Simulated assay, not measured.
Amino acid sequence: MSTPEQHDAVSGRAPRSEQVAPAPGLPADPVGHAPDAEPALQITELAKRFGSKIAVNGITLSIPTGSFYGLVGPNGAGKTTTLSMATGLLRPDHGTVAVHGVDVWAHPVEAKRQIGVLGDGIRLFDRLTGRQLVTYTGMLSGLDRPVVAERTDELLALLDLTADAGQLVTDYSAGMTKKIALACALIHAPRLLVLDEPFESVDPVSAANIRDILAGYVRGGGTVIVSSHSMDLVQRMCDHVAVIAAGRVLAAGTTDEVRQGQTLEDRFVELVGGRHSEEGPAWLRNS
């Protein structure tokens, strides 16, 4: 199993002559994404403090290109803060982040072109309709209007939002809002998708469809990082995982390496601790 110390190494860039086909059903990138030996995301000694609270305490992670990477941890572990710094939304106090070799803070525009983000709790322009929001996001990404229109139609259909495309986002359900935010994250065909709790409030059918879309995206050469509290979902979906607690990496590597023959949930509880063996107070058991 990889250790945090082993995650400091960044391998050299591989030749980029061979094209990779876009994921089935997703908007094609006219440039194409070529295989790359260097990490999709390299986080090195990242740290962030809010007043007296240390939210992230020297995290180092290397996310392999083409991986489906799960980030798990208890509430307050530092997952969202780490992802916010990794995607250029929050400036770190210390450390560096590189997306396919591009420093996020030294070259933010170039780095952010390669990233699609679905943040937990990030506000959308919800006075737009669903179609307008995805179109607007695509135009902001620098895509031509005909390309934006075609990709918007494809994404709305993929996410089962075509019938609601003319409705204001403010009137969407929580699950529909999650899906339209995912469409916005995908519209510019990024090389790296960073999704913070993407399945929260999403119904089982929509969640299954989203998983299929993400699996196709990874098969086409993309990289997905997903933060989730659902251990079963991460175990079934992700080929790599990192366990974070108190702003530190407790374990990282392939999912099988981290599990060590246990379920991911049991291994997580073993690493993080905090499970109570008591059955609760007697009055509750006898009620």
Rank of each mutant, 00 (worst) to 15 (best):
S141L: 13
L143R: 03
D144E: 04
R145W: 07
P146E: 03
V148M: 11
D153G: 09
L155W: 03
L156G: 05
L156K: 05
L158G: 01
L159V: 12
L161D: 09
L161F: 11
T162H: 08
A163M: 02
G166S: 08
Q167H: 10
Q167D: 12
V169C: 00
D171N: 14
Y172L: 12
S173R: 03
G175V: 10
G175H: 10
M176F: 05
M176S: 00
K178S: 13
K178N: 12
C184I: 12
C184H: 09
C184K: 09
C184V: 11
A185Q: 11
L186A: 09
H188R: 01
A189M: 09
P190H: 15
P190D: 14
R191S: 03
R191Y: 02
R191K: 02
R191V: 02
R191N: 00
L192R: 03
L193Y: 08
L193H: 07
V194G: 06
L195K: 08
L195D: 11
D196R: 14
E197L: 04
E200R: 14
V202G: 07
V202Y: 09
P204Q: 04
V205Q: 15
S206E: 02
A208F: 04
A208D: 06
I210S: 07
I210N: 04
D212G: 14
I213L: 07
I213E: 07
I213R: 07
L214H: 10
A215E: 15
Y217F: 13
Y217Q: 13
V218E: 08
R219T: 13
R219E: 12
R219C: 12
G220C: 13
G221M: 00
T223F: 05
S228T: 01
S228V: 02
S228R: 04
S228I: 04
H229T: 11
S230A: 07
M231Q: 03
M231C: 01
L233R: 10
L233M: 11
R236P: 00
R236F: 02
R236G: 07
C238W: 07
D239I: 06
D239A: 03
H240G: 00
H240D: 01
V243M: 02
I244C: 00
A245D: 03
G247L: 00
G247H: 00
V249Q: 14
V249M: 14
A251M: 05
A251I: 00
A252S: 06
G253C: 03
G253R: 06
G253P: 06
T254N: 05
T254R: 08
T255R: 12
T255A: 12
D256H: 13
E257V: 11
V258K: 11
G261S: 00
T263L: 15
T263C: 05
T263Y: 11
E265C: 02
D266M: 09
D266G: 09
D266W: 07
R267W: 08
R267H: 05
F268M: 06
